[in-house]
Design a protein around this nucleic acid. Structure first.
Length: 109
DNA sequence: ACTGTGACACTGG
DNA sequence: ACCAGTGCCACAG
């Protein structure tokens, strides 16, 4: 039906405990460059996912209010360290094996 | 078909 | 560091 959702789910599940990734990176790894918002959407509607390991670009928590606090708490409890409001990506970002190049229309540049 | 809505990303100022 | 503007695109109404 929607080939995109399962791929994104599978990708998210690859992020190991103590590791993190970003909406954009997950989208690219799933074969949908530019689909960051799709990743967020999937996270919202699915359960039993390491949802707290997905962050905004630069390691920023994009949730708001209590949810944001919970995400930070969960991450810290599995050993992820922060630098101010963001996760220290250089130390915790999980790298997916570069797969599916897939195209993306070049934006005016 | 059209419009509004996002747990987004990137560039510029 | 913050904010505005723009691109993106599935989904719901």
């Amino acid at each position: 039906m929607n080939p995109m959702r399962p791929k994104i789910l599978a990708t998210i599940r690859k992020i190991p405990r103590g590791g993190v990734s970003t909406y954009g990176a997950v989208a690219r790894a799933a074969g949908y460059p530019g689909g960051a918002r799709r990743v967020a959407s999937v996270l919202r509607g699915s359960r039993d996912l390491p949802w707290h390991r997905v962050l905004g670009a630069g390691g920023e928590i994009k949730l708001t209010g209590d949810a944001a606090f919970e995400q930070r708490f969960r991450l810290q409890s599995e050993g992820v360290s922060f630098r101010g409001r963001r996760v220290d990506m250089s130390q915790h970002e999980y790298r997916f094996g570069k797969t599916k190049p897939s195209f993306r229309k070049r934006v005016s540049r």
